[in-house]
Amino acid sequence: MLVSYPALFYYDQSEKVPFFITFPDFTNSGTQGNDVTDAMSMATDWLGINVADYLENNRPLPAPSTLEEISLAKNNPYPEDLKYDSKRSFKSMVLVDLDSYLKGDIKIKKTVSIPKWADRAGADLHINYSATLTEAIAQAKMLHDSKIMNK
Score class of each variant (00 low, 15 high):
residue 103 K to M: 09
residue 125 L to R: 10
residue 6 P to W: 14
residue 62 P to K: 04
residue 71 S to R: 02
residue 5 Y to E: 00
residue 37 T to F: 13
residue 18 P to D: 11
residue 12 D to I: 01
residue 67 L to S: 09
residue 34 N to A: 12
residue 92 S to L: 01
residue 21 I to Y: 05
residue 126 H to G: 13
residue 146 S to W: 04
residue 3 V to F: 00
residue 5 Y to H: 15
residue 79 P to C: 03
residue 98 L to W: 02
residue 102 L to H: 01
residue 57 N to M: 07
residue 71 S to A: 05
residue 43 A to P: 08
residue 77 P to S: 07
residue 82 L to T: 10
residue 110 K to A: 09
residue 103 K to N: 04
residue 143 L to H: 03
residue 136 A to C: 06
residue 40 M to G: 08
residue 33 G to D: 03
residue 134 T to A: 15
residue 91 K to H: 02
residue 151 K to I: 13
residue 48 G to E: 03
residue 51 V to A: 00
residue 135 E to T: 14
residue 144 H to N: 14
residue 119 D to M: 14
residue 109 K to I: 05
residue 138 A to F: 15
residue 92 S to N: 02
residue 146 S to C: 08
residue 19 F to G: 11
residue 129 Y to A: 15
residue 24 P to R: 09
residue 146 S to F: 02
residue 108 I to M: 02
residue 20 F to R: 14
residue 96 V to H: 00
residue 128 N to V: 04
residue 142 M to P: 04
residue 139 Q to L: 12
residue 53 D to T: 08
residue 81 D to G: 10
residue 10 Y to I: 05
residue 11 Y to P: 04
residue 143 L to P: 03
residue 128 N to H: 03
residue 127 I to P: 09
residue 116 K to Y: 08
residue 113 S to W: 15
residue 19 F to L: 06
residue 98 L to Q: 05
residue 59 R to C: 07
residue 69 E to Y: 13
residue 52 A to T: 01
residue 39 A to Y: 02
residue 63 A to R: 15
residue 88 R to A: 09
residue 42 M to Y: 03
residue 54 Y to K: 11
residue 85 D to K: 02
residue 23 F to Q: 04
residue 60 P to W: 11
residue 54 Y to Q: 10
residue 86 S to P: 14
residue 50 N to G: 03
residue 146 S to M: 11
residue 72 L to P: 03
residue 53 D to K: 13
residue 114 I to P: 02
residue 15 E to H: 11
residue 37 T to R: 14
residue 94 V to D: 01
residue 30 G to K: 01
residue 22 T to F: 00
residue 37 T to V: 10
residue 3 V to T: 05
residue 65 S to V: 09
residue 43 A to Y: 00
